[in-house]
Design a protein around this nucleic acid. Structure first.
Lengths: 189, 189
DNA sequence: GACAGTCCTTGACAAATGTCAAGACTTTAT
DNA sequence: ATAAAGTCTTGACATTTGTCAAGGACTGTC
């Protein structure tokens, strides 16, 4: 499992950093069962998770008690409540495993330490932050500019793996539509 | 105008940095008329803008040729096409002044230089990036979990100044609803 | 002051989407 | 293997939202 993360870092940095093993020492293995929460809204997020295998959902509960999914994360991606983590403030979102997950996690204290000690670690974080921001910007534009059918097509083109991997109900909660509308529109594709 | 930026930086860093004037030297004054574009979709963004006065809209054009607003930025905020800027890739969004604006802008080359030379400059950038990401995350959740009326209420509570400052048409394009729906729902508040 | 252009509002209607309920089907746990 | 729980689909209907058209209000320009 640690091999995935090692390779992930090497790919990003472009070569094997001198202090790579030191960085990896700060991570611990963590298994998440299907349905298990990594973070519940209101709690302070203490870890950043690297996903070696599985799929994770970040969501809120809307006024009717329904899950509304902000994002899904899969293998070779990172997940945390970034703002709450960096400022050690209560989270607005919940994070849970929608599949059995094999994870590597790093604690807040270690993360801050490495951010100072290891410039390449800080650089990777910055890059991930920029990509995450960019993805979220795309998503805002999709949500404001497209109707339900267009959003489904957008998802199929841009995240086809998510589309086939997850249940319709989860996809619907990600697109901001009801499961019934999802069913009906699928026949119009 | 440069005084605004000087104070902005001092507020963020917590004290006056030694190299502050050196940093400020890399900025140039720039005036934007109402309606003037700072960036057009497809172009590569060469500057980051600090807004000393005015209001700026970041938007895309949807399938029907309508503007769909991703975000508004006002005094004491920064605006650019972050991902396109950092990677010098064509922008997916357009940026324009919705009011007459007094701006300070820094060129890509200077920005990269300062990011290396001035740790505090890099730290401010990281902080802005995190706050921007967090705002966008909030926005995704509002768009997926709320209907039109709830979104209007959300805007009134969270960005009351935007609500009163800009035209209904612009607000509607920000909320992802038609101007007519905007008019009708305002009477239900 | 006249004009063009834009915005805001309203009405009538159409289209999109949500809600509720029921049954078939899958998956999960025991 | 069976029961329990959750998911998917479909129908009927309600609600929300969009579209088109028209008129009044406002703004900037000549």
């Amino acid at each position: 499992m640690i091999d995935n993360l090692r390779q992930h870092i090497i790919n990003r940095v472009g070569k094997k950093p001198d202090n790579l093993e030191h960085v990896l020492d700060h991570f611990e293995e963590f298994s998440g069962e299907r349905g298990q929460h990594l973070l519940v809204q209101g709690d302070v997020c203490k870890h950043v998770y690297y996903i070696a295998a599985g799929c994770i959902q970040v969501y809120i509960i809307d006024r009717q008690g329904q899950e509304s999914t902000r994002e899904f994360y899969v293998e070779d991606q990172w997940v945390t409540d970034i703002f709450g983590f960096q400022n050690q403030l209560p989270a607005n979102e919940s994070i849970k495993c929608v599949e059995a997950c094999r994870l590597l996690r790093i604690h807040y204290d270690s993360f801050q330490l490495l951010s100072q000690q290891a410039p390449q670690f800080a650089a990777i974080y910055k890059e991930i932050l920029e990509v995450s921001y960019n993805n979220t910007v795309y998503r805002v534009n999709a949500l404001t500019a497209m109707n339900a059918l267009e959003r489904i097509r957008w998802l199929m083109e841009n995240k086809p793996k998510i589309m086939t991997r997850l249940s319709s109900k989860l996809i619907a909660s990600y697109l901001g539509i009801s499961p019934e509308t999802m069913t009906r529109l699928k026949s119009k594709l």
